[in-house]
Write a protein that binds this DNA or RNA. Structure first.
Lengths: 214, 214
DNA sequence: ACACGCGTGTTACTAACGGTAACGTTACTG
DNA sequence: CAGTAACGTTACCGTTAGTAACACGCGTGT
């Protein structure tokens, strides 16, 4: 009896939690990362304290919300990186998957990149060096793992793979962010340019006349 | 007289402005980007409204503060990118200069990367796609210019250079951020690994046994 | 029937923040 | 000495995150 009751309650709580998360999702999609707890509670048809009972604080809610989208995006990226094709094709597919995602849902993307902003309670310690969005860290780590698993990089391969994982993710992120703001070219062109960069065209390019090149 | 008066006043105002900025600098260095206007005013020995008279709003103060550091860092980077050496050496010097800067002053670095956080007044429009720190944008644009000036990239070189500029800066940033948090290796190793990545080692690396490589 | 918990929800509050209006005070100028 | 203009303050507003205290519904043990 005790057990069945507990599972019953837990189910109910989980369902409520999902409902709240979906409401929060709608608000964040509408108002951006600045969405207030009041607004989210109102959208869910309830009031603040319930949110706090479920998620502890704003960081908790945002973490839960971010995890959903992060999981979804990472799933897509894994599919792209694991596709049956050559290395270059898969790199391009991965880049394109990421860029398509941020293009399709820029608000969600922005939320994922700046989840914990606006925290003004306490927070004196302000983790230096850990300010990046969890999404970036997770993508970096996952990519590092893929690289280390599949590429033969000689000695020190593990560290090299991690550096590359985070570096490539950062490249993708920064270029995507800039591209999303200015739209200077098509997505396909952007993908090609980035892949060219990773393929060493920077080193291979010839100097322009007048002094040594970059 | 009018002119002398004006210059006199302007000088005084500029001096005061510099004092306020230095006070703000100290507070940001101590409390991180969450530093409150009250705290900054107190550090400067004055009260809030004076800050607002000088800088308009928090964004204005932070922009002014960020510009100083950004200018300083960009100066160092320009020196590194313009040094008389080969391309690879200069790329490594540029990376190392950036990493040394963020290593030396992580609080300042974190502030520069997240300057406008915590804004809670209005701000409904939340510029999608322009959320990146101004420092990143400026570095990306400057690097793009250098690349476009000195490298012979064939047709479409301008767009390619811009993509690469922002991409490389993002790579540097993300890798640096991760490195600063975990310190998995020395700065020199990180620089070498990133330069290797830019030099096409990702494309050149051999597959590990078992299926096609990444 | 009745009290007891327990989960769910509310109202009403605190403390802190960004920002501003209204009021002194100093000092320079006619 | 009157006017004015910058410098500075106190006291306030509206909004935010977060919390305490109270109220309702509901199954349970005695």
């Amino acid at each position: 009896m005790d057990t069945t009751q507990r599972t019953e309650q837990q189910r109910s709580a989980d369902r409520r939690r999902r409902e709240l998360l979906e409401a929060a999702d709608r608000v964040v999609l509408r108002d951006g990362p600045q969405a207030s707890m009041n607004a989210i509670a109102a959208e869910a048809g309830i009031t603040k304290p319930i949110l706090y009972r479920h998620f502890g604080d704003k960081g908790g809610l945002y973490a839960a919300l971010a995890q959903r989208h992060t999981d979804a995006l990472l799933g897509s990226l894994r599919a792209a990186v694991d596709a049956p094709a050559g290395r270059r094709e898969r790199v391009e597919a991965t880049l394109d998957t990421y860029l398509a995602a941020i293009e399709a849902r820029p608000q969600v993307y922005r939320f994922l990149m700046h989840p914990a902003e606006g925290s003004q309670g306490g927070d004196q310690g302000f983790d230096v060096g850990k300010h990046s969005a969890p999404l970036l860290r997770r993508m970096g780590e996952e990519l590092a793992q893929v690289i280390e698993e599949r590429l033969d990089l000689g000695p020190g391969s593990q560290q090299l793979a991690r550096v590359w994982g985070h570096g490539i993710v950062g490249m993708m992120h920064a270029a995507g962010d800039w591209w999303l703001g200015e739209r200077p070219c098509s997505r396909a062109e952007l993908v090609r340019s980035l892949a060219d960069l990773l393929w060493g065209r920077l080193a291979a390019a010839g100097d322009k006349m007048g002094g040594p090149g970059f």
